[in-house]
């Protein structure tokens, strides 16, 4: 089945923010200057009610990015067909501009663990991801962007670097990549990787969207551990990595997420504006450099 890629119609300079219920009224009343809003698919799978009405109102005004957090693409038992059906209903109802999920798992034996859990990056895992991503893309008839998660541990039997794993997945399944720069930074810090080298190894043509968010810095056992809590402004290190990435791959639709300790809408919009300035600036510089 051909996979529809809506991102090919993208200028790449689109900026969006994650839609939070706390901001519904302000968004609809003030129509902020953004290109798109992203929603967590699992928050809108009910048949009706207030949240769906707000989503209808927002999607009348803006392009929508549908971001799944519970598909569990890394589940060894395969995808939950009922959940794929629910996901597909949302795709059919809203015809989202972007669709994404994660390189992670969250479901086993009928229990949903409500987190993006880490996978050992092995050939066994790779084949499971290939099968599950293909199942999802075939079911919805659309390309899915797969996001790199934040990691707090790794497994001794992992032998494929994450960026190679994702590149291979894109090649095998035709999926795109959602590159979360904050997650790259958090994982790199926690695991001792080189964040820039990771960004330099990403296949530019596969990147369909970029995520930015804040994280927390904790001390565990006397050592720093960064926690991807989406509860603060984007850190300076992540802005630097974002500049570096745009210089390398060119502009991409970029989203600012803020999911805990949610601030008033103007604060989130100011973060989006910062991203817009960097995106425009680096894109201009890139064009000048390439003639």
């Amino acid at each position: 089945m051909p996979i529809l890629k809506r991102t090919e119609a993208s200028a790449g300079t689109e900026i969006g923010v994650g839609l939070k219920s706390q901001h519904y009224q302000d968004v609809v009343a003030t129509s902020p200057a953004l290109s798109f809003f992203e929603v967590h698919a699992e928050n809108y799978m009910m048949k009706g009610g207030a949240h769906r009405r707000w989503l209808d109102a927002v999607s009348d005004r803006y392009a929508l990015s549908l971001h799944g957090v519970g598909m569990s693409l890394g589940s060894v038992e395969g995808l939950d067909t009922a959940h794929v059906r629910r996901f597909r209903s949302l795709v059919d109802a809203y015809d989202p501009w972007l669709i994404s999920e994660h390189l992670a798992w969250s479901r086993t034996g009928g229990t949903y663990l409500n987190d993006l859990l880490p996978l050992p990056l092995t050939t066994e895992t790779f084949e499971i991801l290939v099968a599950n991503v293909s199942t999802l893309q075939d079911a919805i008839g659309r390309q899915v962007l797969v996001e790199n998660p934040s990691a707090y541990l790794s497994f001794v039997d992992s032998h494929i670097p994450e960026v190679d794993f994702l590149a291979g997945l894109a090649e095998r399944t035709g999926c795109g990549l959602l590159l979360d720069v904050n997650n790259v930074f958090v994982s790199a810090s926690n695991m001792g990787w080189d964040a820039r080298a990771y960004l330099d190894a990403v296949p530019a043509s596969a990147v369909g969207e970029i995520h930015l968010a804040g994280h927390a810095l904790k001390e565990v056992n006397g050592l720093p551990l960064r926690i991807d809590d989406h509860g603060s402004a984007v850190s300076e290190e992540v802005w630097d990595l974002f500049r570096h990435l745009i210089r390398r791959v060119g502009p991409r639709p970029t989203l600012v997420e803020w999911d805990t300790d949610i601030p008033a809408l103007p604060i989130l919009l100011a973060e989006a504006e910062k991203a817009a300035v960097i995106l425009a600036g680096e894109t201009g510089r890139r064009k000048a450099a390439h003639g």
Binding site: E42, V69, G70, R107, Y112, N114
Partner: peptide, 9 residues
Amino acid sequence: PPSEPMLYG
């Protein structure tokens, strides 16, 4: 623990 990812349920 939840059995489905829709936390509203």
